[in-house]
């Protein structure tokens, strides 16, 4: 398997390589190169105590301008996309509500049908069994009309 070091070596062939090449050219008594042996971490101490911070007003203005521009551009972008996004969400919600309404209307129809079946004259007779007897005309007494009523009985 080609190592990263080997690939870089292939690209930069001819230049003096350090580390791995040196070790590879060594005698047989040396240990085989370990994986990632060629990667070194160099730590360099930096002394910042003598650094002096100088305020560059021009750069600050430029930075603020860029930041402002980015914010404005972002806001514009949001303003541009927001209505579409909101309407998309609203559409989803509307569709969901439409479906719910259709289901509820259907359930209502089903319930009305069941209610009508349970209250059908045939079913009522069945519930009542032998105790249900159609009253004879002589057994039916209609309530007297209210005072001042000219024709209250009947439907016309």
């Amino acid at each position: 398997m080609t190592t990263l070091g080997a690939m870089l070596g292939w690209l930069t062939a001819g230049r003096e390589a350090s580390g791995t090449l040196g070790r590879n050219n060594g005698g047989d008594c040396r240990l085989r190169p370990l994986p990632k042996e060629e990667i070194y971490v160099f730590v360099k101490a930096i002394d910042n105590t003598k650094l002096v911070r100088v305020v560059d007003r021009k750069d600050w203005a430029a930075s603020a301008g860029v930041a402002g521009s980015v914010v404005v551009a972002s806001l514009l972008l949001i303003a541009l996309l927001l209505p579409g996004g909101v309407s998309l969400l609203a559409s989803h919600r509307m569709e969901q509500l439409k479906k719910e309404r259709a289901v509820l209307v259907n359930e209502l129809r089903d319930l009305r049908s069941k209610e009508a079946a349970l209250k059908s004259p045939e079913k009522l007779e069945e519930y009542a069994g032998d105790r249900f007897v159609t009253p004879a005309a002589t057994a039916v007494v209609f309530a007297p009309p209210a005072q001042g009523t000219v024709a209250s009985l009947g439907k016309r």
Partner: peptide
């Protein structure tokens, strides 16, 4: 007819 008159709540016009 007896049922219909009862359902329509037609008042009686004869003695019981």
């Amino acid at each position: 007819t007896e049922t219909a008159l009862r359902v329509l709540q037609v008042p009686k016009d004869r003695p019981e």
